[in-house]
Structure formats: structure tokens, C-alpha cells
Write a protein that binds this DNA or RNA. Structure first.
Lengths: 223, 223
DNA sequence: GCGTTAAGTTAACACTGTTAACCTATTCAG
DNA sequence: CTGAATAGGTTAACAGTGTTAACTTAACGC
């Protein structure tokens, strides 16, 4: 145990080790299992040692969240760059990446957007704006390219973000694919699959259009 | 203290008192402040007495959640009944009621849709299906009345639910109206106001339509 | 009147975040 | 080179949590 102590004497890479341990514990045992003692034990240090690097548990969690947002933002960016500027596909890809990342890193994501009171963080404080700027740019580009109707881009971003985030949140609260009462159109379908199906609604809206007969009963498109 | 004891000796209205106290504590001090001892003290009883009526804290919370969903469902129903069957207004009213109730009962709503692991409840277990059936009926009616395009109603419900729930969730995680980085179209606007603005997108979609010029830059409609 | 049982009590355990007091090795001033 | 200061760790302890065990006490059926 004193081994690590003498080694890390020089600089504070212990801080990094603590953060890494906190991430691991969070991913494995969830937010409830994330205790100061658990993190400390994983690092091989006493619990109170953590207080030399973080003011309290909230501060530690906040740092974990920040690094989480960073990874999240990078993931979104990579997804966006696989599609041309100004295309609706780029917007859609961002949404799909959002859903995918959230479900692959559930314990993580729960904290990122934890509903806990006292956690109302401003979006601007997050690295990369939590991906907001990324989506906004894609929307603005699409409007400029003429693939998306021109309106207030912020309003559109908020709308798309809400829909995507809501799907993820609901999927986490109750396993959608295991809810038979949701009807045959939902049961058995993964959240990502549902998201893709929403694409039709987002593009063309829900209102009955005058230029289409009452017979149309389309499934979901591909793009 | 023995006053209440001798009074409640007869039947178990203590159970109801505990539930009421739990609701109060939850609303006032939030989920973190909801401890067995706090609830017990409010009732005027020892903490361990609660275990005669509820297996553990989770069971107590679950009962609180159930009664919460009941109130939630009633609130939604009242909102729906103020608009005619088959109208899009009825669908929209349900969404607005959803947003309004959530923001007026935040501490409550956080638990209703808590992201906590181990809480993935099936929708069918909730009273009234958590309002799902209500929205579904409104959607089906609208499709039958020809005001809404015909598609899989469950998919539409899931789409509308996601969007609405996402907006609420985001609004709770970070006070939207205090985020200047969200652009002038968002800052200062209440979530309910944003929801109404989404109506245009939901009805007509985001895609550029061939029958409209590139000059259209509409605000949000009224209905 | 007597046991049984329901409904409450206190004491205690294991766990949590956090603080205080302490030790120790490194660093830096004189 | 010595000695003080300090950064970085330790153990002990406190208040709070959910929960269990053991105990009391009041009400009911026979």
C-alpha cells in the first residue's frame, strides 16, 4: 500500500487515478454504489485521501460528469463527420449517436442528465456545450442548404433534442421493448429502431395533408 | 404521542398517514430528504413502525409513486376532456398538461420517472397506464377523424411522448430559460411556451416542402 | 383469565459523507 | 546542512442513513 504512495509522491496523478476509479465504480455499480470508500478502496488509498483532491463527493461526481460529456461530445462529432454538411442525414446521425451512446453508457448517462435537485447545471458550463453546438451547426447548415425549412434554429434544436432525449429517458425508466401494452408497433423494437422510425414524423409532420389520400399508411422510410 | 397511538389502534389508517407524510416530505425536501426517520417523525411515530406497513423504503416510495401517477392521470384526463374527440387540440392539450403538471410537481415527477437503476417499471403496472392510454386514444381518434395522418398509432404516441417528456426532463436538469447560450429564441421562454412552439414542427415537419418558397420564416401558430 | 397476535417501542448494526487530529516525507529558506 | 513549512497521506470519530432483532403493550378470540 505504501508502494503506490512513494511512487505517486512526485505529482498528483492520484487525482487522475481517483477519477478513473470513480468512472469504473459508476459504470459497474451505478450511482448508488459510487461511495467515497468504494472509490478509495479501488485506488488503494484511504477514503479521506480523496478530500485532498476534491472538496466533497459532489465535486468528484461533477468532474466525472465533465469528462463524460467530453467523451460524449467526441462521439457525437465523429458521427456527424461521417455525413456531408447541410444534409438531413447529418442531423439524423447526431440523434442516432445520441441514443446509441446513452444506451451503451447507461449508468454514465444517468448521471450526465441526472434529475437530482441541486444539479441544474447550465449548458454553457459543459465542454462542447454538451453537444448542443454540434447539433445547432448541423441544423443551421441544413437550413442554408435548403434541405430544412427555415425557422428559428434554436427552436428546432430544442425540439430535436427533446424528442431524442425523451426517448432515451423513457427507455431507461422502463424497458420499452418489454412492455406489451405499448402495442405491436413498439414491443420488441429497440429504442434506436424507434428513433429511426420517428424520422418520418420529424420530416413530414403528423397533420393530414391535403395532397395525400386517406389511404396512405406508410411504414418508416430508410433515410 | 400516545394520543395518536390509541386513536389509530382500531384500523390501519396509520398507513394512509405515512403515505401522506411521505408525499409531504418528498414535495418539501425532495427525494434526498425523504428518509424513513423524517417521515416517521412527521407522523409522530418511531421509524421502525413504518416497517409494519411497508417492507422497506423502496416499497414506500413505490406506493407514493403509484398515488402520484393516479393524480397525474386524473389531471391529464381533465385536460383532455376540455377538447372534442378527434381534434388535434385534444392531443396538444394532453401534452401541455403533461408539461404543466411535471413542472408544478417537480420533486414528485422526478420520482415518477426517476432514472434510478432498479426502477424500470413496466408501463402496464401503473394506474391508467401512466396516461399512455389516454394519449393513444386521442391519437387514434384523430386518425379516424382525418385530422392526423394514418400510421401506426403506437409509434406516434411514442414519438409525442418522447418529445414532451424530453422537454420536461431537460428543463428540470438545467433551467432552460437561464441558459443564454441557447440563443435568443430560447432564453427567457418557459418550457410550456417552447412546447407550444413545437406544435408547428409536429404538425408540418421540418423538411423543406416543394410547395413553399425559401422565404417563409414563420413563428409559431396559435392552435 | 389466557394465549395469540398485531402494533408499537428501543437498541443496535453496517453503511454513508465528512471533519479533526495526527504522522511523515518532501521541499525550501537561512 | 539544519530546521521549519507543507503537501499528502493516515486513523478515529461524528452524525446521519436503511434495516433488523428483541422487547413491550394493548386488543382480540376462546
Amino acid at each position: 500500500m505504501t508502494v503506490k504512495a512513494t511512487v505517486t509522491r512526485r505529482t498528483s496523478d492520484l487525482e487522475a487515478a481517483i477519477l478513473a476509479a470513480a468512472r469504473d465504480v459508476l459504470a459497474q455499480r451505478g450511482l448508488d454504489g459510487l461511495s467515497m470508500r468504494a472509490v478509495a478502496e479501488r485506488v488503494g488509498v484511504s477514503a479521506t485521501a480523496l478530500y485532498h483532491y476534491f472538496e466533497n463527493k459532489d465535486a468528484l461526481v461533477e468532474r466525472v460528469v465533465q469528462s463524460g460529456f467530453l467523451r460524449f461530445g467526441e462521439y457525437l462529432q465523429e458521427a456527424a463527420e461521417r455525413h456531408p454538411h447541410g444534409s438531413l442525414e447529418r442531423v439524423r446521425a447526431l440523434g442516432e449517436a445520441y441514443v446509441h451512446f446513452a444506451l451503451e453508457n447507461q449508468a454514465y448517462f444517468r448521471v450526465l442528465f441526472s434529475l437530482r435537485p441541486g444539479h441544474p447545471q447550465k449548458i454553457g458550463d459543459l465542454p462542447d456545450g454538451g453537444g448542443y453546438g454540434l447539433l445547432r451547426a448541423a441544423v443551421v447548415d441544413s437550413m442554408a442548404a435548403g434541405t430544412m425549412r427555415r425557422t428559428d434554429p434554436d427552436l428546432v434544436v430544442m425540439y430535436l433534442w427533446s424528442m431524442t432525449h425523451g426517448l432515451v429517458t423513457i427507455a431507461m425508466a422502463c424497458r420499452i421493448e418489454e412492455c406489451p401494452e405499448l402495442g405491436p408497433g413498439i414491443t420488441g423494437r429497440q429504442p434506436l429502431d424507434l428513433f429511426k422510425a420517428f424520422g418520418t414524423f420529424v420530416r413530414d409532420g403528423l397533420a393530414q395533408r391535403s395532397d395525400e389520400g386517406a389511404t396512405a399508411n406508410t411504414g418508416e422510410g430508410s433515410a
